[in-house]
């Protein structure tokens, strides 16, 4: 994780110069022990900011297509990205996520599966809900308020604009939600609708301006 730490500090310098960032609820991220961090995906900046500023080093499920080039296949795992084949139910990604959780790591997941076009929350993928019900660890909803304004999916961002006139971004962590561990499939299916609603509500709350 040495490269991860070095890049984290470099990116901190850059993002501090590029954005006005405020942090809320960082105390909700545990110092140790496993957890799942759920983020609403508004912008390419979300995962960069998460890996740069989260109080803990994170592993994040990322789309497998970013690993297609040799460079990214080498770099991405070293900065905590775990490939997920989004076009199918990817049992390997689930296994790795559960293995990381067993080791006491924090795992970041974008439950919508892709970036939003209009800044609003998209429907959550049922596979993510099943994963967190199976894992049974604290779930922390996280919102990156303002990243959509800086770099929307359909837009362009001026990466060189540093200094004055920086845009505001709030990185907000909500209190952990405990769903308990659901080992059997029937139990997960029963708990899924309520868990989905709870998470949607929590994500909307952390995304509020």
């Amino acid at each position: 994780m040495m490269l991860y730490r070095v890049l984290r500090w470099t990116m901190r310098l850059y993002f501090r110069a590029r954005l006005k960032i405020r942090f809320e609820g960082e105390e909700n991220v545990p110092d140790k022990g496993p957890f799942i961090l759920l983020l609403s995906h508004q912008s390419h900046l979300d995962s960069l900011l998460l890996h740069t500023f989260c109080p803990r080093l994170m592993f994040t499920l990322a789309k497998s297509s970013i690993f297609r080039t040799r460079f990214m296949a080498w770099l991405a795992p070293r900065v905590g990205a775990v490939p997920t084949r989004r076009y199918q139910i990817d049992p390997q990604a689930v296994r790795v996520a559960l293995r990381l959780i067993e080791r006491g790591e924090g795992v970041g997941v974008f439950p919508e599966g892709e970036r939003s076009w209009d800044g609003r929350l998209r429907p959550l993928r049922s596979g993510t809900i099943r994963l967190l019900l199976k894992a049974g660890v604290p779930v922390i909803p996280c919102g990156m308020v303002g990243t959509y304004e800086v770099y929307p999916r359909w837009g362009h961002m001026n990466w060189l604009k540093v200094g004055l006139g920086r845009e505001r971004v709030i990185i907000r962590y909500a209190e952990p939600i405990h769903f308990g561990r659901h080992d059997d499939r029937a139990g997960r299916e029963r708990a899924r609708p309520e868990a989905t609603t709870t998470i949607e509500t929590a994500l909307r709350a952390v995304m509020a301006q």
Binding site: S64, S65, F67, R68, A73, A76, P77, R78, V82, P83, T84, R85, Y87, D90, Q92, A93, V96
Partner: peptide, 18 residues
């Protein structure tokens, strides 16, 4: 087919080969 993505000797996942 797919490429195997490894990290610290473990299989981390797969990336499809288009």
């Amino acid at each position: 087919g797919h490429d195997v993505i490894r990290w610290q000797g473990e299989v981390l996942g797969f990336s499809e080969r288009i």
